[in-house]
Simulated scan of single mutants.
Amino acid sequence: MSAEEKILELVDVYKTFDDLTVLKGCNLRVKKKETVVLIGPSGSGKSTLLRCINLLEPPSKGSVVFEGHEVSGDLRGADKLRRDIGMVFQNFELFQHLSAVENIMLAPMKVLGMSKADAHDLGLELLRKVHIPERADHFPDELSGGQQQRVAIARALAMRPKIMLYDEPTSALDPEMIREVLDVMTELSNEGMTTVCVTHEMGFARRAADRIVFMEDGCILEDAATEEFFGGRANERAQKFLSQILH
């Protein structure tokens, strides 16, 4: 992988909480326009690894390199980093007193200094992108879970990020709402949005991912192209996990 292709690299990353070591020397590289899906059993460190990327959890040891610059050594740049790295959480984290479009407008106005009119236009554009423009003036409690998560995706996109991170974005949704969120994520991936996603949705992983990273006990045990991973060439532990989750 050339320096021009690589946008993100984690080098020997450890994360410790008190006496518990959650990440144990993780190494990960992500290319521009690549979609990487992190899978593994609960408690394997997937979400913590994701949060280390945008320094919501600063690594205890090791480095996060973004666009060729080591960013984990000085947390004063974390806010700027998070403008370039959008994140969508399990829970939607929307402001309940703001409408869908107002939730999207807030960061561009506050952080980027965008005018209210321009931010409103951007909000409507992004709601069209996630296929719910008719919900612009609805408040979160008037939206389904799937619609709320799509507003959350649109809100992250409003900062024009270079990478999107998803932390189990469909885990809080009813089954019938999962597909509408995954479809939006797949569209963004197909359009070239660099993506790192923690999920148990293997259909999405097969459809959208370029690579699958399998984690267990704080370690990356497998990092393989999607067709290799699902084609029976993953290591024995990863194949056992797959057999349990797919049946």
Rank of each mutant, 00 (worst) to 15 (best):
V65C: 12
L81G: 01
E142M: 09
V181K: 11
K162T: 00
G232S: 02
E4G: 14
A234G: 07
D217R: 11
R29K: 15
M164F: 08
S60D: 12
L98E: 05
N27G: 11
A156H: 07
A205K: 11
Q96A: 15
D84G: 05
R207I: 12
I39R: 10
D174M: 11
E102M: 07
K61I: 00
R51D: 03
M159V: 08
V130R: 05
T186R: 14
E34K: 15
T16P: 02
M109E: 05
K110A: 14
L81S: 01
D74C: 00
R150W: 01
L28R: 01
Q148I: 02
L49Q: 07
G146L: 09
E228D: 14
I104R: 04
L242S: 00
G232P: 01
F214H: 11
L143C: 06
G45D: 04
V184M: 04
V213Y: 03
A225D: 01
R211G: 03
F139N: 15
M164Y: 03
V30I: 05
F230M: 07
S171V: 08
G86A: 03
V196K: 11
T21N: 09
L23F: 02
L242V: 05
A152V: 14
A238W: 00
L56Y: 00
L55N: 02
S72H: 00
R233Q: 07
P133G: 14
D141Q: 14
I153C: 02
G231H: 02
G68I: 10
G123E: 04
D79K: 03
I153V: 15
I163C: 07
I163F: 08
L124P: 09
S44P: 09
A156D: 05
E222F: 00
L94T: 15
A225R: 06
Q149T: 08
I212R: 03
G73M: 02
L28Q: 06
T48K: 00
C219Q: 10
T226V: 09
M185W: 10
E93Y: 13
T16V: 02
I245W: 09
S47C: 10
E191D: 13
T21S: 12
D217L: 06
S60W: 11
P169K: 11
P175T: 07
T226C: 02
D19P: 04
L38K: 05
A154V: 11
I132K: 11
G43K: 02
G192V: 04
I132A: 09
G218P: 00
H131G: 13
R155S: 12
L127M: 13
A205G: 12
G145L: 08
E227V: 11
T35R: 09
L28P: 03
K33C: 06
T195G: 14
K46S: 11
G203L: 03
T35P: 08
S99M: 06
L221H: 02
I39C: 12
M87Y: 12
L98M: 13
P58R: 01
A107D: 03
H97G: 13
T48D: 04
Y14N: 08
G73K: 01
V11H: 15
D118M: 08
D137R: 14
R76Q: 11
T194S: 14
F204H: 09
Q244H: 08
F230T: 05
G68C: 15
G68T: 12
S2R: 04
K129E: 10
